[in-house]
Design a protein around this nucleic acid. Structure first.
Lengths: 257, 257
DNA sequence: GCTTGAACCCGCCGTTACGGGAGGTCCTAG
DNA sequence: CTAGGACCTCCCGTAACGGCGGGTTCAAGC
């Protein structure tokens, strides 16, 4: 009787907008990018949407509500055969994507919470301290993977605050002694120096962990020190250039096996 | 001795990019929007970053890594006094934001998973069926709040698949009987009609739930039927215009108390 | 001093999914 | 016949840069 597209209701863009809850602007956008075309136009150019167009719009909206980008929706709807298979693939991919996003969100939330905790409990009086913490965080970002950062944070929590303070004190002692050797020009293969370096590395290992992943973390830390000794040194009670020398001295000492 | 800004190292934009891991383009962008300005320029216009600029960059990167928009970072860093309080507020707001995003992600994931399940277990052979499901989902979106959708899904799961099928069958019976009354022109206050309407509403209540929230859900459903009887009716084994009439008939019957 | 390749400059277009506005045309009711 | 909606087509703006193109400038080697 009636041809496939000949008869049936038509919707103006405004009517369709009201019926579907999509804005007129968005409908025009979908038309423009060819996602949901108005099947017909009046002589004067007004859009006329057919029932088929309306159904397509609803499909698009459903997939959009799942968070899919318009481009992927178009591709999925463009597959006439194997439509179900395409959908399965699309949804599976989206599920992966969402899981990834959830994971990133989890990490971010964790970091923000951690930072707030430091703000609340740690050094109350000095804004500079906190700012410096921020700066250091950004540096760490470039060198450690998220997993490594998580491990480091976990290990610090595990050791406890007083153990960390104790380690810092021991670290300060090592720095003082080593700086004196640097000053005196003691050769790096001197047994005393080697012993100090060994204790330094052991101290670090408590934070980096052991085994292969611990070694990678330690390597990342060394690389960071090598490339940023100035900035990192500025936070310590010794002059930055001294720290740079010290880092070079340490590397040299380690190189002598 | 040396003035506050007179001495000290300067970084070219490329050096700073390599040292910080930020791209040259991003650095120029930060400069352009006034977020991290190069404190100096050479006579020919090349950017020279001072140590202060570098520190500011690291702060910005740290806050950016927490997901904060550049505009908020600028505002937070612009607060000289009360910097810590500003940080606290900033992070607290960000935590709320992240929680909101996580919640939306959870909902999306839930929906995608649900849809995949339908794809896998339900009507395998017909792509049209699934597409129609999609279309219906988009309609529901406009009428039910996320909470209502969740409740509806929960109640359906709770009732079980066979109970849902049984309800559908009873629903079909009611439609047949009511359509006959519409055909015959039975007045809507006829006791038989009123009884059918009562049974109809009871059937719906099993899905909508009871109490105030159930009534709101039911009202949303009625509104949807009123405004979309054509499209929804197209999925049922009765002609769409018959369903539109039926909806009007039902409304009239309910209006006669 | 000159050349040359790398580094740097600025300005502009593109990305997503539309929002919003300008300026003009069309439709329908009174 | 006129008023006021509804509709049309450009076009700019969004966030945070990426990536051109075309033109200086710098630093090192000869």
């Amino acid at each position: 009787m009636t041809g496939k597209n000949g008869a049936g209701r038509r919707w103006s863009i405004g009517e369709l907008a009201r019926a579907s809850g999509v804005t007129v602007r968005a409908l025009r956008h979908y038309d423009e990018i060819g996602l949901v075309r108005a099947g017909e136009r009046t002589a004067s150019g007004h859009r006329r949407y057919t029932a088929g167009d309306v159904r397509r719009l609803y499909r698009v909206r459903a997939l959009r509500a799942l968070g899919l980008p318009l481009e992927e929706i178009r591709e999925a709807l463009a597959t006439p055969a194997d439509a179900l298979e395409a959908m399965r693939a699309l949804l599976a991919a989206q599920l992966l994507e969402l899981n990834g996003q959830a994971e990133r969100l989890r990490r971010l939330t964790e970091q923000v919470r951690d930072l707030m905790q430091r703000l609340d409990q740690a050094s109350l009086p000095d804004p500079e301290d906190f700012m410096t913490t921020l700066e250091t965080m950004a540096m760490l970002d470039g060198y450690f993977t998220p997993e490594q950062r998580e491990e480091l944070a976990g290990r610090r929590a595990e050791l406890g605050a007083e153990a960390v303070e104790q380690a810092k004190a021991r670290f300060a002692g090592l720095v003082e002694q080593l700086l004196r050797h640097v000053q005196d020009g003691t050769p790096t293969d001197d047994p005393q120096v080697q012993d100090l370096v060994r204790r330094w590395d052991e101290l670090g290992a408590a934070f980096h962990g052991d085994g292969d992943s611990g070694e990678q973390t330690a390597a990342a830390a060394r690389r960071m020190w090598r490339e940023h000794s100035e900035e990192l040194g500025a936070r310590l009670p010794w002059p930055a250039e001294k720290m740079a020398e010290l880092v070079a001295y340490l590397e040299s000492a380690r190189a002598t096996h």
